[in-house]
Computed example of a mutant assay.
Amino acid sequence: MTQALDIQHTLTKKIKPDEDKLGFGIHFTDHMFILDYTADKGWHQPRIIPYQPIVLDPAAKVFHYGQTVFEGLKAYKTEDGRILLFRPEQNLQRLNRSNERLSIPYLDEELALDALKQLIVVDQDWIPSKAGTSLYIRPFIIATEALLGVAPSTRYQFMIIMSPVGPYYSEGVNPVKIFVESQYVRAVNGGVGEAKTAGNYAAGLKAQEGATDKGYSQVLWLDGVHRKYIEEVGSMNVFFKINGTVHTPALNGSILDGITRKSIIQLLKHWNIPVVERTISIEELYEHHAKGELEEAFGTGTAAVISPIGELNWQDQKISLNGGQTGELSTKLYQTLTGIQNGILPDPFNWMVEATAISSHS
């Protein structure tokens, strides 16, 4: 599908924030991308416009039935001035898998990637260059049909907004304390846990509040049926190093197929470090700790890349991992992945995609 991309440049550029005070998802670039969908035309009218509020009818289905999906990825500026994206085709493939689960029409991935590159080129001055910074990119789709009947929408908008962000950790990669959640569940097999949709995150807020009140950074989610098998940590995938082998919960229909997760598994195999995707119970994890076999644990995701776990609290049983220090493997994974993303280290997997304007859609 080839459609002319209309670009409307802003007449009033924003003042860019101090790169030392970016935070995460606070500031937004000068422009955004929009693509419309109607049942009769399909996806149409791709355009880049000045960043602005959107106007929706109060009856828009996104507000009432949560028909929405999103993605998150980053762009990096290298020392030689190139703009690199980390595995963007994986994000768009996953977006379409989420679309399928939420009954949202298939999105042309090539068109979306071209539009994303065009948007980055238009706002390339917003990509921070300081170490640890990047341009966070949020593609999302919302159902816009103004009709309260419970059925898939016949109208949608696909949008991309971007935000310059600082390092997720202001003082380096430090271990966090995790509360094992036994009351609430995030998702179940057959639900929408493997889709990247807003409801999954709303479902986790109550438990996160409780964990924060107890002094913990995140929640470790257990499965929704038996309440014993480990699934995710916060909104990240989770890994455990046990006796030299790295274990991570197998994808089971309620766990998100994380792109960082996939990349970590590839890196471990590349280094000939044994890695196993399987079902892991919280009891088993505690037994390994009691035997001195649980060496490291960490979460993985786009925002933090690697988040080491220093303490777990399950039913008031607290255990410390690796003496509460960041493990050797966690450090190596973080440094390698961020080095590849920033163009500092070689990219043996061809993960990085250079962002340049695509003339076929302009």
Rank of each mutant, 00 (worst) to 15 (best):
S217F: 15
N237R: 01
W221L: 03
Y229P: 04
V233M: 15
G204N: 09
D213T: 06
Q218G: 13
S217P: 00
A203Y: 01
Y216C: 08
Y216S: 05
V219G: 09
V238Y: 00
L220D: 01
A203S: 13
A211H: 09
L222V: 08
Y229C: 11
F239D: 00
G210A: 07
D213G: 01
G234N: 06
L222Q: 02
V233G: 01
E209T: 05
G234R: 07
M236D: 04
K206V: 13
E209K: 10
Q218W: 05
A207H: 07
K228Y: 03
I230C: 14
G215F: 04
V219K: 00
T212R: 13
E231G: 04
L205D: 09
G204S: 15
W221I: 03
T212N: 15
L205F: 09
Y216D: 02
G215P: 03
W221Q: 04
H226K: 11
E209C: 13
H226D: 11
E231I: 03
G224S: 15
G234M: 12
K214I: 01
M236V: 06
A211M: 08
H226Y: 07
G234D: 10
R227Y: 10
E209H: 06
V233T: 04
S217C: 10
V219S: 03
Y216V: 04
G234S: 08
F239A: 00
K206F: 08
L205S: 05
D213N: 12
S217E: 15
K206G: 09
F239H: 01
T212E: 12
K214L: 15
M236N: 06
G224T: 10
M236W: 12
K228D: 11
G204A: 11
G210S: 10
Y229G: 01
F239K: 00
K206Y: 10
S217N: 14
A211R: 06
M236K: 04
A207K: 03
G224D: 11
G204V: 06
V233K: 04
Q208S: 15
V225E: 15
D213K: 10
G234I: 13
H226F: 14
G234P: 11
E231S: 07
G215N: 07
G204Q: 13
I230S: 03
G215M: 06
Y216I: 03
E231F: 05
G215A: 10
F239P: 00
V219Q: 02
L220Q: 12
S217T: 14
E232I: 03
T212A: 15
Q218N: 14
K206C: 12
G204M: 10
Q208V: 14
E232G: 05
D213F: 05
G210D: 11
V219C: 14
L220S: 04
V225H: 08
L220H: 04
N237Q: 05
G234L: 08
L220P: 03
Y229R: 10
V233D: 00
D223L: 13
L205Y: 09
M236C: 07
Y216M: 07
E209A: 03
